[in-house]
Design a protein around this nucleic acid. Structure first.
Length: 276
DNA sequence: GCCCAGGGAATCG
DNA sequence: CGATTCCATGGG
């Protein structure tokens, strides 16, 4: 996508277009980032990330070029040509408005287990409380890393009891978390299949887990497996699709329907849909 | 007190 | 199948 330079301590992503930190990290796809004085912080892939925008660039603090390229180039989907995808979306007027409103959203490729666990927790829940439950989970059972706590592994969670998870206050979701952890740790869930199998097979694979229906499965496929065709339908998107696209999704959504979903979702959460 | 929250399972008809 | 109801918990 764009040039990566280093001064030996920090990374500078030059001319970071179609990449707004706030829109990307606070649009509901990830739950472990927060902003303070323009600096975004959060633990991802087992290490603390700190970053901020600087003019046309984005600076990532305290990371080598090697580590950035090997782990976070894919994490931030820098291999995806966003300007080209957006051009393909331009024939839909609603999507064009949404992109005009927040065209800096990027899809992430998060850790699969973390993403799965997070969206199980998200069901029938609100974002502040989702963040709280995940934070308590990490602080109680995640490994300490410089500046924070990593997300606990599936094996670690699989070894826990419902009683041990009770302090998270996850409610009825606790049994779903345990089932997911056990099926991931045992290898019963084939993570390779999630990326490479047919979309329907990948979805079914995830829905073997208790508490994982179509919506959570699509979130995991989209936000951690790079399955851009996945189109998670939550209550907001359902309402919007019903009103804006009664005859079905536009053809231009195509194989990138999930990316369109992100733009639309963010727009309708922050604007009056009836104004469209 | 009452309502809702980026759903899903169980239980109907 | 499609439609309801319940599920725990916390914040407004």
């Amino acid at each position: 996508m764009c040039e990566i330079v280093t001064d030996g301590k920090n990374i500078r992503l030059k001319n970071a277009d179609s990449f707004d930190l706030s829109q990307t990290l606070d649009c509901g796809q990830a739950f472990r980032f927060s902003e303070n004085g323009g600096v975004w912080r959060g633990v991802a892939l087992g290490r603390l990330l700190e970053m901020r925008r600087d003019g046309d660039d984005i600076i990532f603090f305290n990371i080598t070029k090697d580590e950035f390229q090997s782990k976070f180039y894919r994490y931030f989907t820098l291999d995806i040509d966003y300007p080209q995808i957006k051009r393909g979306f331009s024939e839909d007027k609603y999507l064009s408005l949404a992109i005009e409103y927040a065209g800096g959203i990027r899809l992430l490729r998060q850790d699969k287990w973390e993403c799965l666990c997070s969206f199980i927790i998200s069901q029938n829940n609100n974002i502040p409380r989702i963040k709280g439950i995940i934070e308590r989970l990490c602080e109680a059972f995640g490994e300490q890393v410089p500046g924070g706590f990593a997300f606990p592994s599936a094996a670690r969670v699989a070894a826990l009891s419902a009683e041990q998870l009770a302090p998270l206050r996850a409610g009825f979701r606790t049994k779903y978390i345990l089932d997911a952890a056990q099926k991931c740790a045992s290898g019963e869930i084939d993570f390779e299949k999630l990326e490479h199998a047919d979309y329907d097979d990948a979805r079914s694979e995830l829905m073997k887990i208790k508490g994982v229906g179509p919506k959570v499965a699509d979130c995991v496929l989209l936000f951690s497996c790079g399955r851009f065709e996945a189109f998670p339908r939550d209550v907001w998107i359902k309402r919007a699709v019903e009103r804006l696209y009664p005859d079905g999704l536009p053809d231009c959504f195509g194989q990138f329907a999930g990316i369109a979903q992100q733009y639309l979702f963010h727009y309708i959460r922050n604007n009056d849909i009836d104004a469209l």
